[in-house]
Design a binder for these strands. Structure first.
Lengths: 194, 194, 194, 194
DNA sequence: CATGAATGAGAGTTCATTCAT
DNA sequence: GATGAATGAACTCTCATTCAT
């Protein structure tokens, strides 16, 4: 595949992303993507064989980007609480955005492809999240910012809550106020004095 | 509709429930249900017009049953902590059961039918859960069992966590140990001395 | 399948037979048959799953009919030579008919589904033909009509020749004269005095 | 066309031959040949317009080679019986070889392109075969090796039998024993004393 | 009420053929 | 000459939905 083809491939992925964001996974057909891209039926098959393959590729790319992003920001001199807040704010932003979210597509896909496998994208993301938060809490304890007897439990708690809010956001909506209240509740449980 | 028809209608709902439990919502076709029921194609249409209508009816019935169930058990003389534990155990059981769970079907359905509407089944269940837990916590505080500065926040926290775990259970699996750890973490945050 | 459906099934088979006779096997699509029958796309699939299945069913029926036919005529009091001649004439008629012949379809099919298996329709027909002719020759020898040192070889010879002529008829045509000459040659080799 | 182009053309023909030998005619697509050759889609079209054209060219070449071959070997001093046997052995070898045989491809092609035309490759080959055998039989009669009242009929008989065996070999298989028996039967009918 | 044959729209997929580079 | 991306037609197969019986 030449230079041009790579551009087209990327174009297809970008366009398909919008389709997935709008319609989830199961309702998206190759035809939908073909039409969104404005290319020919056969043309799409030159690049991808199925909607599944396309979604997987999109997720792979996003995971890459997220990693890169994190790597860029984490080496700050902020306090643990600051970083945790930053992280939660980031999650909140993602949570509340309606358009552009692959959440539904991803869940729909993994409902039909449950794997306990550690390669499962969702699981990897979840585990990674827990680990990051746990580290932050421990750092916070060391610096005297936080008080917590069970950093691992607290970290899991936060990730489960985020997961729960993400789902609620996609099924019956969730307001910014609701998110803020819950995040505040979580921070209050950690911070030594507020 | 006569007696017999009602029986048949119920038979269809019961059978369809199994189909939804097995395949979720989007992958279930009228044909699937017809075949599972062993009735004629046209016969199904005499009772229901779409898979959506069938699922909605199933959910309506389940909600009814759940309410009845709760009403029966809540009037005990147990302590607040006992009741909360009971509630969490019930949730845990539901969480870990693979077969017979409509979880995936329900999420798949509501992904495609988001309504902020208070009639939204999921929302009603969530709100009801928060309220119940909040009451329990307040009762626990009153009886000296619990300590909690923000019962509403804690109640929401618990419900979000349950939601998060439910999803994880359906996408990449979750072990009993993981559930227990998190429930323990939650209880420890509430109970006065452990 | 009710009475009516059986009629329709038969109608499809009869119509498909014409299509196969005209276009062979490989060039016939389900669509071709649908259009020839004047039914809907999905309608055909109610009865048959593939062109292969349809052709096989047609062959099964034809074999049945042939058997019945034979059974009806063979109990005559004709001499062996008469019967053999009758048989050869029948073959000749089949050979020379352009329309309505499944020859090409059958060969095209079996080219792609070679089986040494005794269930192979072609093989069964061939073997049956050899046996019938062999019996006739032996009867002719007994009655003094024929002279033949190797009835089995002669019988095989006749069947191979018929096979060869059938093929030639379908690939570059064959005239009645050519067939007659060869059949005469064969009979001359058998009959005691001509 | 330059030297190089001729080489490439030949390479395509050689490669395509293998494809036809393996898959017959109708199942071979331009794509198959392109892939077998490892050249570009467009590249193939520079040399040939269709699978038909390619097969025709292959057959033209083979006919050429066969003619050359015959020309080389026929001028021996063997007896007619020897030469006929040699010829039959050659045919037998061809008959029994599985790989590398264009038989199926050729029949599949001519099933769909019947021409009574004398240019029809199959017909030319058949007629040529008859003529050669007839000449051999006549020579054999002259030398006292053979006895035959109808050399032309006998020659046709042999060619039809070969044709029939060729077909059977490709549809339900044929054993060497079966071929030998039939060839023996034929020779016995010709040779004066065995 | 109940049946199941029938329809037709629509999704997936493959390939011959063209054409800009 | 050669490439291979792109197109669009053709085919297979499935299913929601209707309707005569």
């Amino acid at each position: 595949m030449g230079e041009k083809s790579l551009q087209k491939r990327q174009y297809i992925l970008d366009t398909a992303r919008k389709v997935f964001a709008e319609k989830g996974f199961k309702s998206v057909s190759m035809k939908d993507i073909v039409e969104a891209c404005g290319i020919s039926r056969g043309g799409l098959y030159l690049y991808f064989d199925s909607t599944e393959q396309i979604l997987m590729e999109i997720l792979r790319m996003e995971a890459q980007e997220t990693d890169d992003l994190f790597a860029g920001h984490i080496s700050e001199e902020d306090t643990a609480a600051d970083i945790l807040l930053l992280f939660l704010k980031e999650q909140k932003k993602e949570l509340l955005q309606k358009k552009d979210s692959l959440t539904v597509a991803v869940y729909e896909y993994f409902f039909g492809h449950k794997t306990t496998d550690r390669n499962n994208t969702l699981r990897r993301q979840f585990d990674a999240g827990v680990k990051v938060i746990e580290k932050l809490i421990e750092a916070g304890i060391a610096s005297g910012e936080f008080y917590c007897e069970n950093p691992r439990g607290a970290a899991s708690n936060i990730m489960y809550v985020l997961e729960g809010m993400k789902i609620n956001a996609q099924t019956f909506g969730i307001t910014e106020k609701m998110v803020d209240e819950q995040l505040l509740y979580i921070m209050e449980g950690l911070v030594v004095d507020v």
